[in-house]
Design a protein around this nucleic acid. Structure first.
Lengths: 108, 108
DNA sequence: TTATTATATAGCCATATGGCTATACATTAT
DNA sequence: ATAATGTATAGCCATATGGCTATATAATAA
């Protein structure tokens, strides 16, 4: 989980994920195109994404194709959703409780 | 967004968020209790969470109370959800297309 | 006023990060 | 066989990170 969130904490890597989501599997060079960075820089980013399980590497000759992997995205999303919604549920329940209280003495 | 994902990329900070979601606003000392770390260490973590907007600090005398802020959690969740679901939608559409093809010549 | 408590800041350390250049490796093209 | 292409690795740099201890600051208690 650490690795997934860390990988998402960089704009270049999030943009790579966007590209894969929009247009499907692409090579390292294709993914590098929109960024003004050296080739080894993208290579590093792709390794970070791969290690986090967010992409899968398919070696096709001298080209490496990268596929988006949704499982860890789903996990990260679930972690956030559960905490956020639990907390919002707590607020909602507290609000209902306060709303049921007697405005004079604070008892229900 | 960078800051939010980065803040979530650390187990201690995620656990702090869990504590706040479970039990509501708590002081720095309360949040420190479950971890075997020095006081300034938690102070740093809390500042990271605060800078990312994930918590709000309420100074009450010498005690600092930390409240969970769900807006950036929602943003992060939405980012992931949109990319994941877009991609899964793409897969689903591709699957329907392939399913409609003639198995002999690959045409539809 | 003095002591105690809660938190922050300064400053250090080891390690990780994101970027680069130069170079190596692997595969395809000539 | 040689050249060209796609990617990775090594090694460097500046900066950031998470941890610590020691100390400062702020607020409450004695």
């Amino acid at each position: 989980m650490d690795r997934a969130f860390h990988a998402l904490g960089d704009g270049t890597r999030r943009e790579i994920i966007s590209m894969l989501a929009r247009s499907g599997a692409q090579s390292a060079n294709q993914l590098r195109a929109p960024f003004n960075v050296a080739q080894p820089t993208i290579s590093k980013h792709l390794k970070v994404l791969e290690t986090a399980g967010l992409v899968r590497r398919e070696v096709a000759g001298r080209v490496h194709l990268f596929h988006l992997e949704t499982a860890p995205l789903q996990q990260a999303e679930d972690w956030i959703a559960s905490h956020r919604s639990f907390w919002e549920g707590t607020l909602r329940r507290l609000d209902q409780f306060v709303g049921a209280m007697d405005p004079e003495d604070g008892t229900s």
